[in-house]
Design a protein around this nucleic acid. Sequence first.
DNA 1: GACCCTAGCTAAACCGGTTTATCTCCGGCT
DNA 2: AGCCGGAGATAAACCGGTTTAGCTAGGGTC
Lengths: 331, 331
Amino acid sequence: MRVKRPTIKDIAAAAGVSKGAVSLALNGRSGVSESTRARVLEVASGLGYRPSVTARALSSASADAVGLVLVRPPRALGDEAFFFQLIAGMQSEMSCALLLQVVGSREEEIALYQRWWAEHRVDGVFLVDLLVSDPRVALMSSLGLPAVVVGGAGHHGSLASVWADDYAAMTSVVEYLKSLGHRRIARVAGLSSLLHTVRRDAAFASSVVDGVVVPGDYTAEAGALATRALLASESPPTAIVYDNDVMAVAGAEVAASLGVGVPAELSIVAWDDSVLCQHGRLTALSRDTFAFGARAARALVAVIGGALPSDVEDVLPELVVRGSSGVAPGV
Amino acid sequence: MRVKRPTIKDIAAAAGVSKGAVSLALNGRSGVSESTRARVLEVASGLGYRPSVTARALSSASADAVGLVLVRPPRALGDEAFFFQLIAGMQSEMSCALLLQVVGSREEEIALYQRWWAEHRVDGVFLVDLLVSDPRVALMSSLGLPAVVVGGAGHHGSLASVWADDYAAMTSVVEYLKSLGHRRIARVAGLSSLLHTVRRDAAFASSVVDGVVVPGDYTAEAGALATRALLASESPPTAIVYDNDVMAVAGAEVAASLGVGVPAELSIVAWDDSVLCQHGRLTALSRDTFAFGARAARALVAVIGGALPSDVEDVLPELVVRGSSGVAPGV
DNA sequence: GACCCTAGCTAAACCGGTTTATCTCCGGCT
DNA sequence: AGCCGGAGATAAACCGGTTTAGCTAGGGTC
């Protein structure tokens, strides 16, 4: 049933040379005459030959795939448009396949990376969701596994990275709000174990005096809860910056249900723009996640190709001002 | 640099038996004594042995991966939460990896499936976006490649399938609108090349007299354009059913901008629920895409395991009534 | 003419498994 | 004693490539 494809052996027989000569000829390496090479190439294309990635991977060559492991409860994944955008962008710059697996723990993730690499199933991997002190960085270096850190904080040991300056972005958001007269600014943060959360925290703390930070986990529930708590405090903020779109939208709804006018009494800014923000008319920090993924893929391809790992900084996210932000009340 | 993992040869040496015996012992096959098997297993686990999927795939065994090829312009992918939900659901029921690639044409897709199968890179594949007369179905059968049709129309040759009854679902939506007094009902359809679009068209045509169908392509632009055209016609519909959430939200905004009251003058129903519909308060046909993906994965695992292909029908999508639908004007 | 070098090619090992053919030993049956 | 059968193990082939060692023929140098 399975279609038998021509192998290197068939070509060798048809061209009247040895397997080894065919391999050399096809890979453009020296060791065969030009006339032989031409004949082999002709026979190969005549037979519709395509090399077997599986066999090639076994003898320590390319695996024609890159890996991405996501750690999270599977159900939570579907709501994160960010990752799908990212993956879509990666695909646009890769001719090889993406080996994707979702696991439940960091340990599994690490084991999977090691296994994929040892078995030549991948040529390189993407590292996402970087932790504050991430063991994966050292692991990649010690394994010699080509890797690109996606969305970290710039320098990560000897690894290449593609990143955005969250510190500067947060500062710009705060400056924007300050220029509108806001003084009591709050922040609903993302998971505190993630590096970029810490970066944003730091930027927020250094540019806002007495800024309140409420931890969150990117869910609508967390956003609603945090907003309710902030608005109920004795001196409620006049502006809130949320770490993602879902929490921001939930926050906007809580404000509406409490009769708090947006933006008259409360300004809302979301990190990461999306259709959700567009339709909710939320001011958002917009970045091109697709392009970000594409950049990451290009970096990985380069590293796999032997290029020296370099750090690529993404353009600063752009603040898209919509209806949810305005001058502070009483200004 | 690359970590050297124990191979079957190392185990053989350590246990004092041959490679073949180790293979038999590890795979639970007869041909070795129980005492030898126990010793081999002990040595293997002591050495931390993990078989190489790559090598195993080469000698015509499992590839420990399943494939999914998506045909569309990469940039369009990121907005389709449906696929990410689906993939997340699939992952939840699979212990193996997913080989994912986005290509630009049907021809590339077919070539990729053939190649992956010939090279043992996958054990089976998912078929999505089924066309009206889809060449892939016959191809899978002739290749003998285990496959599951996701979201088709029930029977597809000898292939297993996981599907939802779009015909019945569309009928139920129309009946719901009729019960509210609507008579002039329109539909903004999806891509006409897709099988489920045709099914929905047929159900719509048979339950609505003089129903207008405007073709669309799932983008916000198409939804807005279609809605504008429908509302400008001489006898505008009192209800519109959209083939996805993005078009429905765009339609709702067009109605709002034209001063057409929703649901007072126009009822809107979206196919496929999402956060977008939730926040836009749109009545939507809701299905659990994550569970759908999980079911598809289970079906594929079963087929790969040698089970006879069967057709699994998903539960009927449930109509979630929100603020965008109500009694027809003048009723 | 002896020597060396190199281009061009082949044969064979190798990657890490699976599978088949073969070989040995032991027990049971007649 | 002789024959047969099966269990238990091994060696070797195989999957489809890459890579290395080695062989041969031809040309250049002294």
